Amino acid sequence: MINQPRLDEIKRVLSSDKRVRVTELAQRFVVSEETIRRDLKYLEEQGLLRRVHGGAILPVPNEEQPLQIRSRIKPRAKVRIGQLGSELVEEGMALFLDTGTSTLALAHQLTRFSRLKIFTNSLDIGTLMTQQSDCAVTMVPGRVRRNDNALIGPHALAFAQQFHYDIAFMGIGAVDLEHGFMDYEEPEALLRRVLTRHSRQSVILADEGKFGLRTFVNTLPFRAVDTLVTNAPPPASFIASLENAHVNILHPGTAADDARRLSGL
């Protein structure tokens, strides 16, 4: 059971000290270390801290965490996003899946297909689809970025521009009301701009925690994207701006008919 006062105090201590230790917190609250570990796990899933050996630290502002860490944040939300995104897909489509935890969650859902053409710059997605599906998988060339196993650089951009995709599924670092879709680094922003120009339908996958964040790179204005898939209805101000930019919003509150309509069925 969640103890909100204890969680609030852990957040306060972390904000002040920048780091907390399991043993010290257990003594402070007179609870077991296992209880504190559960608290830290819960807070990490909300994106409020990063667990490390023996405790937790604050995430570094304006720096994207490694994929392994990000995969532990809002895991249920990403599974739901993957499920919703897969409703846009038909057998035989050519898809680009860029790197990210939401696109990886989508890839898990796509293993049930057998005749997709998958293009990706994610080693993790490429491995998953090769080992767990019969789909054709093409890896984008490039330099491997170690914190997320992404293939990036000019070779990746040049290769991606050679094709036209039915759908390009893209993650994103942040969704800002003023600047639109944003990223932490330039390589993924450059690739995502290419993908929007080379796909019949461009789709951003973003969990609810991305709304209201502002990161380093202005990647795309809202109007450049066809569809946004998220796990919950966005704040009203974002809905208004997205709809004004003619972005289709797909979340668990939308009807299944809408998903089929967006996929062109």
Rank of each mutant, 00 (worst) to 15 (best):
N149I: 05
K18A: 05
M129N: 07
G100V: 01
L97Y: 05
I249G: 11
T254H: 06
P66W: 01
T230R: 04
F181Y: 15
H108L: 10
C135I: 14
V140K: 04
L95F: 12
N218H: 15
S86Y: 13
T23L: 14
I172D: 03
A156L: 01
Q201S: 13
I69R: 01
E34S: 15
E178Q: 13
R19G: 05
S237L: 12
D166M: 05
F222D: 03
L40A: 07
H198K: 09
S202K: 00
F181Q: 07
L95I: 11
I73T: 12
L48R: 02
L220W: 09
E91A: 11
F216A: 01
R80L: 15
M170N: 10
E45Y: 00
R192H: 13
R146Q: 11
L43V: 02
I73N: 02
A232V: 11
A174Q: 11
R115V: 05
E34A: 15
D258M: 03
D134R: 15
S202N: 05
H198W: 06
E24L: 07
G264A: 07
I81A: 03
Q46G: 06
E90A: 10
T111L: 10
L228W: 00
T127S: 14
V31I: 12
N244L: 06
Q161R: 14
I118W: 03
E9P: 05
L228P: 02
M1T: 06
E44L: 03
Y184P: 03
N149W: 08
H198L: 03
Q4H: 04
L195I: 11
T127Q: 14
F113E: 06
P234M: 07
L84N: 07
L88R: 12
R80T: 13
R200Q: 07
G264V: 12
N218A: 08
A158D: 15
E63W: 01
P141Y: 09
A136G: 14
V247R: 06
A158K: 15
R72P: 00
R28E: 04
A56Q: 03
L195S: 04
A255D: 07
N248F: 08
E34C: 00
G253L: 13
T99N: 14
R28C: 00
L116C: 11
R260G: 00
A236Q: 06
R146A: 09
S241L: 02
R80N: 10
I69G: 02
E91M: 14
I69T: 15
E188H: 15
E34P: 00
S202I: 02
R214Q: 06
P187C: 11
R214P: 01
S122F: 09
L43D: 06
V140T: 15
R197W: 00
H155K: 09
S32C: 06
A259H: 15
L58S: 10
Y42F: 13
P61I: 04
R12V: 07
Y184N: 12
P234Y: 02
R21L: 12
A240K: 10
R145W: 07
L151F: 14
D98I: 15
A105D: 03
E45K: 03
R261G: 04
A259E: 00
E33K: 11
F181G: 04
S199P: 05
P233C: 05
Q4V: 13
L58Y: 04
L95A: 12
A77M: 09
A189Y: 10
A206S: 09
D258S: 05
I249W: 03
